[in-house]
Simulated scan of single mutants.
Amino acid sequence: MLKKQTAISIDACVAQHQGDRAEQQDRVVLLSHPSGDVVLAVVADGMGGHAGGALAAQQVIHTARGNFERYFVRHESPQQLFEANINEAHMLIKALRFVNEKDPHSTAVMLLLQSNKATWAHCGDSRLYHFRGKRLLSRTTDHSYVEFLVANGLLSPNEAEKHPRRNVLVTSLGGIEAPYIDYGEANDLRAGDAFLLCSDGLWDYFTDAELGLVVAKLSARRACDALIAQARVRAQGIGDNVSVAVLKLVGNQPPARPTDSRKRRGTSKSSRRHKPADAK
């Protein structure tokens, strides 16, 4: 469990499953800033054939980690950090084409938690959800072909769920054009708020309401385990890579009463996108 030095603690967990694919091309990480006051979560879903996608996703994580370690919390904005992470990773992924003779691409979704504020950015169709209890407050919009059709009134949300090109992105890191980045933020966070970041190998099998209910009811670790297990069942043997990060804001518990010395002593531990028309 990661804790902020405030009246609210962060119960956080990241988890992955290879699914039914030959290789795990997703990457996920949860980082604590050297100052101890800021947390960064990142999910990247790599694409580009054997090894290429994994290299692209790993580059997103490597770039984010390096920039976050050098991030000046008081002098740089979250947007500056996100722009540097995504644009630098984009250029380095493009360079991988010449080194590895692959066509690597990656999505990216990032969440920065500091004080009582959350800021996020994404490119592609890896998603971020913000829940208060089980109620959905906001969700990122995929940079995908079908979401473009929905936004322009050419396709209904129900039709989009079954569309044959629903996995085609219109932007990504590593594409010919510069990646398109969307930003979001939430202020006045409180105990009961939760954030879920995940690749499409997870969200593809759930409604927003189902995700909110699981995250609200369970600890971060148990929520990750339960969501992955259910996604595997619903995938029916043809599931994609799965990556998920859950961050829950919980109120600190009051100090426990001193244990009666006559009693037995013990301890307890509680611990889809502006991709170039590529289908993943």
Rank of each mutant, 00 (worst) to 15 (best):
G184Y: 04
R70S: 11
A56K: 07
G212K: 13
F98I: 02
Q236E: 12
A118R: 01
S261K: 04
D188M: 12
T119A: 15
R265Y: 02
H62C: 06
K102R: 15
K162F: 09
A121L: 05
I93V: 15
H122W: 12
R221W: 06
S144H: 03
I86S: 00
S243H: 00
G19L: 06
R127I: 06
W203N: 12
K162N: 10
L40W: 04
I181P: 00
A231M: 09
F98Y: 14
S115R: 15
S172V: 04
D193A: 09
Y71D: 01
L247M: 14
Q253A: 12
A256R: 08
G36E: 11
A89N: 03
I176W: 07
A64R: 11
N100T: 13
V14T: 15
R165T: 08
E177C: 06
D188Y: 14
R273E: 05
R21P: 00
V215E: 01
L154M: 14
D188C: 10
L213W: 10
E101T: 14
F98W: 10
K248S: 07
A220T: 11
A56M: 04
G53K: 14
M47Y: 02
Q253W: 05
S106L: 08
S144C: 02
F206Y: 11
H90S: 05
V146T: 14
G19M: 05
N187Q: 10
K217A: 12
C13E: 10
A277Q: 09
H163M: 08
D125I: 07
A57H: 08
G266T: 03
L227E: 00
M91N: 10
A209M: 08
I10P: 00
P78H: 08
A108W: 01
L112H: 06
V109M: 07
D193I: 02
Y183N: 01
A95L: 03
L149A: 07
R70G: 03
L128K: 13
E161K: 15
A279L: 11
A41C: 11
R190W: 02
L128R: 13
A95N: 04
C13P: 00
H62S: 10
L81D: 04
V250S: 09
A54H: 10
C198Q: 02
P157Y: 10
K4G: 09
T171H: 07
S106R: 13
D45K: 09
L136F: 06
Y129S: 09
L218Y: 12
V43F: 01
A89Q: 03
E83H: 14
F98R: 13
H105C: 09
H143V: 01
R27T: 11
V99S: 12
W120K: 07
I61T: 14
L30V: 15
Q24D: 04
H130P: 00
S268W: 12
R97S: 08
D142N: 08
N158W: 07
P164V: 13
L169Y: 01
D200T: 00
S156N: 03
A51Y: 10
V38C: 13
G153A: 02
Y71C: 02
H90G: 05
G53V: 12
T207W: 10
V60P: 01
N187V: 07
E76C: 09
Q25H: 06
F131E: 05
I228R: 01
N167C: 09
L128H: 09
R166V: 03
I61W: 02
H105N: 10
T63C: 11
E23Y: 04
A44M: 06
Q230F: 05
V215Q: 06
A57L: 05
